[in-house]
Design a protein around this nucleic acid. Structure first.
Lengths: 191, 191, 191, 191
DNA sequence: GATGAATGAGGATTCATTCAT
DNA sequence: AATGAATGAATCCTCATTCAT
């Protein structure tokens, strides 16, 4: 039970951090506020994280892990490349739309000097399965022969952008629109 | 000459802010550092900007203005929709690639709580000419009948993303690649 | 055995404190570090000592006791005043040279506000045997008629100082030098 | 006048530090207390000293300088070695007796890890004139042929010790006693 | 007795902002 | 207008001590 309690407290802190930083930004979120929100003492945070920077970095990784789990959960290897892609793509969209805090947090920190190189690389490493799918698609002559970066950009950045607009209520991203966008994106890279 | 000197000092401060914030981030850029970099006294900044927040906001607007000027400079109204689009698109790419500081700054602050609603709206308002071009394209049945947001996302976010990778040296964005990407994007929205 | 174990733990804590405080100083030695060095839990220290201050004070007394034991061990009451003095003096020198940690600790705390008046007095009280020897010397007209404080100062402070230099490697205190210094000191107080 | 004010504030801070640290010890003297005692804001200290450590080090040096100035002020080179020595010795005693705070401060920090090597060396370097006097005495066959360290120890440490007792009111150091002690010390090193 | 997680007060330091010159 | 010394609130973090297990 001691270990459960540890896990719980760590999670309370991570969740409090996620909520406050996403809402107010890094600078406007003192450790004391995180402690209060998490219902622990200020010093307790330092039992689980070395300092504010490490707290952010671990939270960032946690977010990336959750996302990849979400995206690949239920993934069926026997699916065709196109169906696999659609499955992953829609899982991704669903994930970021239903976890706005996690999404916003990743947005804020992906290019932040607070995230150190190692964390960033570990975060990127999780995209491996997707890259393998691209490779398969190219080999099977299903998608165009373009570098991973371009395929990723064509496939994911438009919807990524639209989700951002949706979450800031500048645009209403319906299921129908999502389907439309997937088709546009897929068309642009398929052979 | 007094007014010119004023203008100069204001610009010195804005440029110093751009450089330091882009390099070190908002938190790691004290007003005193900006003053030193600009070659003025700390107090002087407050003669031109009410406080740090306003300084950031004004710089943000300035960046947006410069970008729109860059993008539409030399724009010829007699061009076809497709050619207009290509002109603007490539101007945009050129601008953000040659002004990495300005680009990075906008990236950092577009979704930041430091930029207030009014500044953000004013920044968005400058996209008006582009939106009018979309409207024209839809009317002339040259591009698909899609909302502005989707057209913008399809057209600009992939290259936007690739420029980010390019500037962080994770990808080499050559002239050839740029042309390829334009074609992909344009294909995805044209009728 | 329980009591033996208690004694052991108390000693482990005292030794750890001696080592760490001497090396790093009082401020740079948290209780948690002492616990780790002693191989006990942080809370355990408080079973043996009321708080940090008392821990220091008890250690200080312990050091004084050890020193007096060292200094008078093997002391022969039938010796002449001069021989007694030489015996004690050289025992003292030997003790502080072979127990640099204990010596440094006493140095650090003799004039520190952390050592309370009572501890200090108890520490001084142990010099009683030496003072009696002075009294005997004066009565037998072997040493000059000077107050204890002056005799002590003349006899011990020069070598005390040289040992400090020796331990900080600014001076090499050989057996020959020690003998020379004893003679100088003794001459200065003998009649 | 601006510079005078600077000097004044720096001195206010140094004096406050001297007083509080000597009374309460390093740990028990927060920067905020120093600020209050000096009559400045907490942040102001950092305009004159990089941090607490540097403040202590500069104060330490200041104390050493003042002492050497005191000790050699009015020093007449035409005096004999013995008279020179007596002059300096008594100046020294007078200085540490009349400046108990400065004396205690030096005592506290001479062997403290807070004083860095450079400061310590610079502090020691000021003893040069005294060492030259020793050399002269040896050459003129007036004092015994002993290393500087021993001469220093014999000459200064007994009185140093007695002053400490005097200041802590464990001993009353009268002018007569001082003269007696000088004679004892001088006798022990003179040929 | 022993543990070590949890506490929260306290301290060094930074920095946006002001204001006397 | 320009300065930059001074301010002091705010923040991160440490650590002596407690207490439930």
């Amino acid at each position: 039970m001691a270990r459960e309690s540890d896990k719980e407290k760590r999670d309370l802190i991570l969740n409090a951090t996620l909520k406050l930083i996403t809402t107010n930004g890094f600078d406007a979120t003192p450790m004391s506020a995180i402690a209060t929100e998490a219902g622990v003492a200020a010093g307790t945070i330092y039992l689980y994280f070395k300092n504010k920077e490490e707290l952010i970095n671990e939270l960032y990784l946690e977010m990336k892990v959750r996302m990849m789990n979400s995206v690949t959960s239920g993934y069926d290897v026997t699916l065709s490349v196109e169906n696999s892609m659609e499955f992953i793509w829609k899982n991704y969209v669903h994930h970021i739309m239903t976890k706005p805090l996690e999404f916003r947090f990743c947005e804020l920190f992906t290019n932040s000097p607070h995230i150190n190189r190692i964390t960033k690389e570990e975060g990127t490493r999780m995209l491996q399965p997707v890259k393998e799918l691209f490779e398969k698609g190219r080999k099977e002559k299903i998608i165009k022969n373009l570098p991973d970066e371009i395929v990723t950009a064509q496939l994911f950045s438009p919807i990524h952008n639209l989700v951002k607009l949706h979450l800031s209520e500048q645009f209403n991203l319906t299921e129908k629109v999502i389907n439309t966008v997937f088709k546009l994106c897929w068309e642009s890279i398929k052979k």
